[in-house]
């Protein structure tokens, strides 16, 4: 069974006005939104640029906005976002500089992740009935940028550290002997850090990997509040953690 659907894709090339191009594509509804875009590129318009690599929600590169919502198109099936004859409105991530078409500059995102420096591989929990061992695994956060795109604070404060990096900071602090660098502390607790969050929880709503950045930002605030009170009372830090 094939469906014919319409994709209205945001187009932009440096030096040219932005526009929207409309494509019709015939595709199996069991295939993904990314497949439909790749098919348009292969069969209709080779000038279309979009980011993609793993096609199974591991690399985080293909994130975009479809019908107004941040999604990972590589795991979003056509049948789950439209109907036969339906239309998909495809845009690049919001709150990022657009380089061309659906490609945004991920530089600002990775600069933030570099400040916090969360290891991408950490300990894996044992499976049920499994003897404990030193197993490790890639972190849930795939660094796709969807949380920054959905965040209302990023939209108004371009220097905001943002949900992914703040969640990463909490993760480092709550791991066994994790420490944040002085630079990371300054960014997390500074003017553009965790206190800017408006608690909209949009980041947790769009996260494709169940990281729950908003929940982690709230936990980070609780922790920081305790630290500040301890500091005021002259009790020192609850944990040695301001080391470089």
């Amino acid at each position: 069974m094939m469906w014919t659907i319409t994709l209205k894709i945001a187009r932009y090339k440096p030096g040219e006005p932005a526009r929207t191009d409309t494509f019709q594509v015939s595709i199996d509804p069991e295939r993904t939104v990314l497949d439909s875009i790749e098919k348009i590129w292969a069969e209709q318009d080779r000038s279309l640029v979009f980011r993609h690599a793993c096609h199974h929600a591991s690399c985080g590169s293909c994130a975009m906005v479809v019908n107004g919502v941040e999604i990972l198109p590589c795991i979003k099936l056509i049948k789950d976002v439209t109907k036969p004859g339906g239309t998909l409105i495809i845009e690049p991530l919001h709150n990022f500089p657009v380089i061309s078409d659906l490609v945004v500059d991920m530089g600002p995102f990775f600069e933030r992740m570099q400040i916090v420096k969360m290891p991408i591989v950490g300990p894996a929990d044992p499976l049920p009935n499994q003897e404990p061992n030193e197993y490790n695994r890639f972190d849930d956060c795939i660094e796709c940028g969807m949380c920054l795109s959905a965040c209302p604070v990023v939209a108004t404060d371009s220097k905001y550290l943002g949900p992914a990096a703040l969640a990463a900071a909490y993760q480092i602090l709550s791991s066994g002997d994790g420490n944040l660098s002085a630079q990371a502390w300054e960014a997390v607790d500074g003017e553009h850090g965790l206190w800017r969050c408006h608690v909209a929880f949009e980041c947790s709503a769009v996260c494709p990997s169940n990281v729950d950045p908003a929940g982690k930002i709230m936990a980070l605030r609780r922790r920081m509040t305790v630290e500040r009170i301890r500091h005021l009372l002259g009790l020192g830090s609850s944990k040695k953690k301001r080391e470089k």
Binding site: V49, F50, R51, H52, A53, C54, H55, S58, C59, S61, V103
Partner: peptide, 13 residues
């Protein structure tokens, strides 16, 4: 295309 958008990106890891 994007880095690793061909064979490499879609490999079995």
């Amino acid at each position: 295309g994007e880095i690793a958008s061909g064979t490499t990106g879609r490999n079995h890891c």
